[in-house]
Write a protein that binds this DNA or RNA. Structure first.
Lengths: 179, 179
DNA sequence: GGGTTTCTTGACCGCGCAGTCAAGTGACCG
DNA sequence: CGGTCACTTGACTGCGCGGTCAAGAAACCC
């Protein structure tokens, strides 16, 4: 499965054939269809596993941090660190968003992640730590910042995740004007 | 070409065949290969046209606004308005980022757009209107916010672009803490 | 009208795909 | 030792793809 992730990420889902995957692993095609129903199902499995893994990583990072703002910060940092280590998975997640077949499965996972962030934002607002705004929008905005900075600076330019995360957190908290 | 854009966006680039495109238009395959070298070249053409069109729209919106911060705001609003009107193109741009064949062509265009934003940010920093930070990172962060909010709220949830743009600008300027 | 160029058709080609299956292989059980 | 079952193989099938091309049709000039 790890090999399939690598191939999908390197060439794209459609251009990667099942024959190529099994040949690269040195096994017969039968093995593939013994463990998976189809190429599509394999991809969905990969997607689900990636989302679960990322979520676990975020939960661990947050652990029992009491400050909601700091929880958001730790979550952002965790997701960027995860993306740095799982470049290929990240690319597949991005692809999944563009194909109707996978978009639904993806969205369900994303919504769970965003809901977590929303929870922290609401708590922070209630405590007066944070300006009033639609928590849903703010949550998506932060996910967007993290996704884009990860893509450009960590994956394309190879900069260290923690430095990019610093900049990401600074921007998310204070914006352009710098509070 | 407009029909191809619609099909690519609806089903994905690979699952859409040239036969399907020409059948949908009620013409023969020869017409397609008379006007385009290949399916790939058609996609690149679409991509280029979309980027050019978006850029023109932004330039018009900015026109001769003197305040650099306001120029950034107008640029964000223009790109969100464009995305609302060009939902399908938006999806193709997202797909292009995931396929090695198109990623280069896409990146070249994106860099031009980001460079524009960077220019305004630098000007704003020099004028002391904006906190010091790496302009390149800030520019990508804002593009990320706009992209994500557009995708989720305008395309998936069908909310009006100007309201989402208000929230986007507010977040980009002041961040979570609200300055 | 005859000749040339521009555009259009759709049957056709070779290919490589996702998925199938008859024929094993070998571990384990009674 | 024979029988069963979990797993593996790779040749094979049918299909639909991207792309080609011989055969026109329509527009235009002389």
């Amino acid at each position: 499965m790890a090999y399939a992730v690598e191939r999908f990420a390197a060439q794209g889902y459609h251009p990667t054939s099942v024959s190529e995957i099994v040949a690269g692993l040195g096994v017969g095609k039968g093995v593939f269809y013994w463990y998976f129903d189809s190429k599509e199902q394999l991809f969905l499995e990969i997607l689900k596993e990636a989302q679960t893994d990322l979520r676990r990583r975020q939960q661990q990072a947050i652990a029992d941090e009491p400050d909601p703002v700091r929880r958001i910060e730790l979550g952002l940092r965790a997701s960027m660190a995860w993306s740095e280590e799982h470049r290929a998975h990240n690319q597949l997640i991005q692809f999944a968003a563009t194909e109707a077949t996978f978009a639904d499965a993806l969205r369900r996972g994303q919504e769970v992640a965003v809901a977590d962030v929303v929870k922290h934002i609401k708590e922070a607002m209630a405590a007066g730590l944070v300006a009033d705004a639609d928590p849903d929008i703010v949550a998506h905005a932060m996910v967007g910042v993290a996704a884009y900075l990860t893509q450009t600076f960590i994956h394309e330019r190879g900069e260290p995740a923690d430095e990019v995360a610093d900049a990401c957190v600074a921007f998310c908290l204070r914006g352009l004007l710098g509070g």
